[in-house]
């Protein structure tokens, strides 16, 4: 069982830092070898996880969810009420999405999601987070200067548009619902899903292009 002792775990971290090889690839190999040799994880399962994750879990899932919400007012209402439940229609529930909350961009509000304390992310609907989302710069700056951050992503907000930043401090996770672009009237869910980007669901993109992402 864990000690749940702050001083003890800090001491173990210092010991490991002084004695492990500095190359992170070797450190990961050490963890992998220990787990495999102790019969806790099979080597093939690790390879299978990496392939499964790359092939099956990713932002295409979130895009399909949002495309349906754009097309189906009842589904939209359910998504806004309880996104963690609504994604179960697609079987997309999983890691870090049980308490998922959808937040809607409007002509007057732009939503931006961050986790300043670690890097919480709705993995099961968006897949692996981008490196910048996990970076110190994004985590530090998104809450204090969201407009400057957005400008680096090419988003310039009029002053009339208010920014609402969501800092994911508990087990709620946030999914931004971008505005449906003009010129997509009559499009199918599949056509719409193709133009919805990962960044638009984090909030670092605002206007979607009509060209597939």
């Amino acid at each position: 069982m864990p000690s749940f002792d702050t001083k003890k775990i800090g001491e173990i971290h210092r010991e490991l830092h002084s004695h492990l090889p500095s190359d992170p690839a070797l450190r990961v190999k050490a963890l992998e070898s220990l787990l495999v040799e102790k019969g806790l994880v099979a080597q093939e399962s690790i390879d299978n996880w990496i392939e499964m994750y790359a092939e099956r879990i990713g932002p295409k899932r979130g895009a399909q969810v949002i495309a349906r919400a754009w097309c189906d007012p009842d589904y939209y209402a359910r998504l806004m009420e309880d996104a963690g439940q609504a994604i179960k229609d697609f079987g997309y529930e999983g890691h870090a999405t049980e308490h998922l909350k959808a937040v809607q961009n409007t002509a007057f509000v732009h939503n931006l999601v961050v986790c300043t304390l670690c890097s919480c992310y709705p993995f099961s609907v968006l897949g692996m987070s981008p490196i910048w989302y996990r970076s110190a710069a994004y985590r530090a700056r998104a809450v204090k200067e969201p407009r400057a951050v957005l400008a680096e992503f090419g988003v310039t907000l009029p002053e009339a548009v208010k920014v609402r930043v969501w800092d994911s401090t508990a087990e709620l996770r946030y999914l931004v619902v971008p505005e449906r672009p003009r010129g997509t009237e009559g499009w199918s869910e599949a056509q719409l899903a193709a133009i919805i980007t990962r960044d638009s669901m984090i909030g670092t993109q605002r206007d979607l292009s009509l060209e597939p992402a």
């Binding site: 992170p24 690839a25 992998e32 690790i46 994750y53 981008p130 910048w132 700056r141 951050v149």
Partner: peptide
């Protein structure tokens, strides 16, 4: 500045660590 064009992983070991 934020590295807006960075990939999800820089190195293979990162995906491996995620799996572990």
């Amino acid at each position: 500045p934020i590295e807006v064009d960075a990939p999800d992983y820089r190195e293979d070991w990162e995906a491996r660590q995620w799996a572990l």
